[in-house]
Design a protein around this nucleic acid. Structure first.
Lengths: 344, 344
DNA sequence: AATAGTTGCTTAATCGTTTAAGCAGATTAA
DNA sequence: TTAATCTGCTTAAACGATTAAGCAACTATT
């Protein structure tokens, strides 16, 4: 059976000293606490011999720090977020933190729930990919003085730390690229959402058209609801292709939209890029494997995650510091799905 | 700033009683502990008023239970495992447990590391998707008396609880299906691995051929190393197609292998299923989106995860109970990639 | 009236750490 | 010589909960 865990007391007893001394030595405070060299060495040896592992619970209870980070992501089945999770976990570990991941599934109730559970578990701070209608939750965290960093999505009206892609610029680049590749009637399918990053993607797309002297047509921009993604993506594609003339290029504002759209293209036997050029946000194996590889916006996942952890750890360690707000550039990876159009 | 958390003491003070009484009331032990009705009501009210939330650390330190489960998966970037993680998380929450996820990335060192970190964090038990060379770690857990359940992969030589797909049967079904669809020269690309589930997949494939009176050819079975997956998948496909005659159908033993294989097919301009029929393990959007939807083995992810959590929670709660060993059936989802072969 | 039993509460130990404070004895300074 | 300082250790409180044990003050029993 499990040989009972060794505690400070066990070591203290075996060494014939008090637990205080053992604690000092094992925390490297020998100097400040004026511990004798001999006994220090002895303590260390005994600790090793007994395979001493400190009890995190006790430590945390005493110190108020758990060395645990709560990561709340919007949707773990999205590979972008799954990869974010992996990066955050790795980086946190390097900094001596453990991560507890929760997926809010784009649902504010679930998100609040998770937040509460994790606050209750005394996490030292949060990294959050916010979901719809969660601005209030962010305000709450702020009010409670709990350290957190927003990742990928942020609220322009709330002063917070955040690390995000420049969604506006990314969408602008996408639109611009399609125009320079000869496309003239460029649509976008986005989510119906108040979230700022979505607004920015839409704005970037519109500005790209404008700056290229292509008058934006309202019917080119479609917004679908997250919960009805499958049916609504189909319906909007039908609409976009039924226009006279139909669009000749389409930007998907997220990975999920692209998946549903591409599936429907296959059903319709629409050919990419001849019938319709494509650029998409998100990144995944799918984009490589599609019969016509998809041009996409590559977000700097590794850097995003690492920076967020770095920021958070700093915030946890010394409370001062003004808010850090970091925008990173997405890289447009050009593939066959947006190849230069053969003049009509 | 953060209104200091309320503790039992605060409530006790405000109610003018001892913390013991408060504890009894708030844990529903009013009856056993003979607490007066009036004071009980008062305590409850004050607790609500002060938004009392018990401190998990203190509770855990005292009770030795953290209500936390460690989930160690082999590779979080694999959507199969990502989904497992989601299911486990949800189910655990329903049972009042929090999950800490770690990805071992198929690396035994990382796996041991994770195990240690989480043991140290006093998780109550583990759900583990074992990686290569981790049998010893499983033995250790057993020896230490820490409750755990193996998920999806298990060791036939070690008596443990596990919940797994019947990998043998799944592979057998795949092979059988290809034969009945008219394919005669059926290859398999698998991992070079000691892990039992991989052995079983290989055995199932071989037995399917045998039972259908197709003599198995050694050159049809290729094993690649996880760390060199990209180059080795390409090399083995070259070999398989260079045979005289080449194979006419191929089973991918995992999702990762399929991704790499399909990518290479695109490069080679091999057509599925005309040049080569495909069945794959794993499941993902990719299989829907490929120009020719891929026949795959659908593992009962939800049930696997839920059962594992259920088993573990039971084990944690009452230590006795003999090992539960559960095998579930994968469903073969037939798509165009394995459609009946036009007679040669 | 004496005893036993019940009711309603408190006390204090405990889980495993950390750390301020204090106490001898040795050394140095004046 | 006496005080001040240094050295090496111990004591004990604290973090926030749980819970066995005990103590009054009643009520019921004989």
């Amino acid at each position: 059976m499990s040989a009972k865990k060794t505690s400070l007391k066990d070591i203290a007893q075996k060494a014939g000293v008090s637990t205080a001394l053992v604690s000092y030595v094992l925390n490297g405070k020998e100097k400040e606490s004026r511990v004798g060299q001999e006994i220090a060495a002895k303590i260390k040896e005994i600790a090793k011999e007994l395979h001493y592992q400190p009890n995190h619970l006790a430590k945390s209870l005493r110190s108020g720090k758990t060395h645990t980070i709560g990561l709340i992501i919007a949707d773990i089945s999205n590979p972008f977020f799954a990869n974010i999770a992996r990066v955050v976990e790795d980086e946190a570990k390097k900094n001596g933190y453990t991560v507890i991941i929760g997926s809010s599934d784009e649902n504010p109730d679930k998100s609040r729930d998770l937040l509460n559970v994790l606050i209750n578990r005394q996490v030292d701070g949060f990294i959050i990919v916010s979901s719809e209608d969660s601005a209030e939750q962010v305000q709450d965290l702020k009010a409670k003085g709990i350290p957190f960093v927003l990742l990928d999505r942020y609220f322009p009206d709330i002063q917070t730390d955040f690390v995000s892609t420049d969604h506006y610029q990314a969408a602008y680049d996408a639109g611009n690229h399609l125009v320079s590749s000869g496309y003239k009637r460029i649509g976008m399918i986005a989510y119906k959402s108040q979230l700022f990053h979505m607004q920015e993607r839409i704005r970037g797309y519109q500005d790209a058209l404008k700056d290229n002297k292509i008058p934006f047509q309202k019917a080119w921009l479609k917004k679908v609801r997250f919960s009805y993604i499958e049916s609504e993506v189909r319906a909007t594609i039908d609409e976009l292709m039924a226009m006279k003339p139909p669009i000749d290029a389409l930007i998907f504002a997220t990975y999920g939209l692209a998946i549903n759209g591409l599936k429907y293209f296959n059903e319709l036997r629409l050919r990419v890029p001849d019938d319709l050029a494509i650029v998409s946000f998100g990144q995944a194996e799918v984009f490589d494997l599609y019969y016509c590889p998809i041009t996409y916006l590559k977000q700097p996942i590794g850097l995003l995650g690492q920076t967020a952890v770095g920021l958070l750890v700093n915030k946890i360690k010394d409370h001062q510091k003004g808010p850090a707000q970091i925008l990173m550039k997405a890289e447009l990876i050009v593939r066959a799905s947006s190849k230069t159009k053969f003049p009509e």
